[in-house]
Simulated scan of single mutants.
Amino acid sequence: MTHPEVLRYTAFSADPAGGNPAGVVLDSTGLDAAAMLGIAAALGYSETAFLTPAGPTGPGGTGPGVFDVRYFSPKTEVPFCGHATVAAAVALAERSGPGALLFRTAAGEVPVETARNDGRLRATLTSVEPHTEEIADADLTEALAALDWPAADLDPALPPRIAFAGARHLVIGAATRERLAALSYDVPRLTALMERLDLVTLQLVHRAAPEVFHVRDPFPVGGVYEDPATGAAAAAFGAYARELGLVPAASVLTLHQGEDLGRPGVLTVELRAGDPRVRVSGEGAALPTA
């Protein structure tokens, strides 16, 4: 089997020192799941995107480039990953120019638009249709015990929910920025709960302003203690905020993530009135080669 070229990009930052690093394989034709998992594990990033070109669409083949995409963490495959989507889209735009793409993922079809502004490439993904659901009291109690977060440290204005926009995330609101910053959790205990509830990450959130949030995302089920910037969780959070009436139906939210890891990134979440799908955008950049 030919060894594919593995690109390295950061997503949700134009600075290679910020955002969330992702692996990108632009042509994974011939790779099976075991080979993809092996590549992702060797790379060690929270996610690697494996693309298989499926051709253009539209009359005369003039539509967006279409790709079948799979996402692997060092431990497992996930149905959708936002930061690796942004990284892959930026990599494609560098090679073929900005424009429209369509990623066919295990979660559904995800349109992606890329554009260049002031010399920087930016990608915007449109999520699959999202939803939220309640979490059982016993499961929430277990999550807080694994986090070692007293219930008194939660923000009552951000009620815990499981939110989905391609993958499942448990949203928990922290009353203070200090509570969010002090993240030290029981890895086996939280992993067991997340596997039972089919969660990809926890989306831990502190509201800094009406439409500005700080977020952190434990990702032990993927073999990563914490994800530095999580586009799928950002999309899920946008749906959560809208469904609970925390923000207007048409809103642009700014999520700051990675600051506590020394890899700051910015995720922009756009909600449109009358459209249930959520748009998440951010910049990206190639990482220096070793």
Rank of each mutant, 00 (worst) to 15 (best):
F72S: 06
M36N: 03
L158Y: 12
P56M: 08
P264N: 07
T105E: 02
H83R: 12
A22K: 12
E133A: 13
A49S: 13
A151Y: 01
V69K: 06
P56K: 11
R104G: 00
T85F: 02
D137V: 13
V215C: 15
T52K: 13
A250S: 13
L261A: 09
V24F: 09
L26F: 08
R70W: 01
S96G: 00
L202S: 08
P156W: 11
V25S: 06
L197M: 14
P74V: 08
A35G: 02
T10G: 00
L121Y: 11
A41R: 15
G61C: 00
Q203C: 14
V269D: 03
P79L: 07
E77G: 10
A209V: 09
A234L: 09
A11W: 02
A151R: 15
T114E: 05
Y240K: 10
L26H: 10
Y185H: 14
A209R: 12
A14G: 12
A165F: 10
G258A: 12
H214V: 03
E195R: 15
G55E: 08
F164E: 00
H169A: 03
A236I: 04
L255M: 07
L37S: 05
T132L: 08
G274D: 00
C81A: 14
S184C: 15
A285W: 01
S13P: 11
A163Q: 06
A35H: 05
V25G: 00
T62C: 00
P79D: 11
T85K: 04
L170Y: 12
A100P: 10
L144T: 10
V86I: 14
P79M: 07
L102E: 02
H214G: 01
V110G: 04
L121R: 00
A241M: 06
A174M: 14
A146K: 06
G119K: 05
G284L: 01
T29H: 05
P98F: 04
Y185R: 08
V269E: 03
V90F: 04
S28G: 15
R242S: 03
L31I: 08
R70I: 05
L246P: 03
P228N: 08
I135D: 04
L43D: 03
L255R: 01
S251M: 04
V66F: 00
L125M: 08
G55K: 07
L170I: 10
V278D: 03
S127D: 13
V25P: 02
L190T: 15
G63W: 00
E47D: 14
P220Q: 14
R177F: 13
P218I: 09
G238Q: 11
V187Y: 13
M1H: 05
A167V: 06
R104A: 04
V200L: 15
S251L: 08
